Simulated scan of single mutants.
Amino acid sequence: MKQLNLMPAEPLPGSCFVRQAARAIVIRGNEILLLYTARYDDYTLPGGGIDENENIESALARELLEETGAKSVTSIQPYGIYEEYQHWYKPDFDTVKIISHCFLVEICGDFTAPQMESYEQANGMRPVWLPIKEAIAHNKYALKNSDKKGQSLQRETIILETVAKEFKLN
Rank of each mutant, 00 (worst) to 15 (best):
F93M: 11
I98D: 06
L64V: 03
K97N: 06
L160N: 05
K144Y: 02
N123L: 05
E117N: 13
E54S: 03
N170I: 09
K165I: 05
V96F: 00
P11I: 14
Q151W: 08
N5S: 03
L104N: 01
G47A: 04
L4D: 00
I32C: 11
A21Y: 07
R19G: 12
E67N: 05
G47L: 05
D110C: 09
D92T: 12
N139R: 03
D51Q: 15
E63A: 09
D147H: 12
A122N: 15
Y40A: 11
E10K: 15
R23V: 12
V73D: 03
G14R: 02
N170M: 10
Q151M: 15
S75Q: 12
T37A: 08
T74R: 04
I27N: 00
Y40Q: 12
Q154G: 13
T157Y: 06
S58F: 13
N30T: 12
K148T: 12
E161K: 06
H87A: 14
Y85G: 05
Q121P: 07
K97F: 09
I76T: 01
N30R: 10
Q86D: 10
K97S: 02
A164N: 09
V73G: 00
T44S: 15
F103W: 07
G80Y: 07
G29H: 00
K90W: 11
N145L: 02
L60S: 01
V128P: 04
R39V: 11
I136V: 09
L4H: 00
E84G: 09
E57Q: 12
R155P: 01
K2R: 13
C102D: 03
A122P: 09
E161A: 03
L33S: 07
A21I: 07
E84R: 14
E166V: 04
L143T: 08
I32N: 04
L45M: 11
G14D: 01
E54A: 06
L169N: 03
Y119P: 11
A135M: 01
V96E: 09
E66P: 06
G69D: 03
L60G: 00
P127H: 02
E84V: 10
A9T: 04
G49W: 02
D94R: 10
Y36C: 08
E66Q: 13
A61Y: 01
C102P: 03
L64A: 04
L34E: 08
E63S: 06
R23G: 01
T37D: 06
K140A: 10
L35N: 14
Y89K: 14
H87C: 12
G150A: 10
A38G: 11
G150S: 15
E106R: 07
M125G: 12
G49Y: 05
I99V: 14
A61D: 00
Q77L: 14
S100R: 13
S152E: 13
G150H: 05
V163W: 04
I32R: 01
L33N: 05
L160E: 09
D42M: 11
L130N: 05
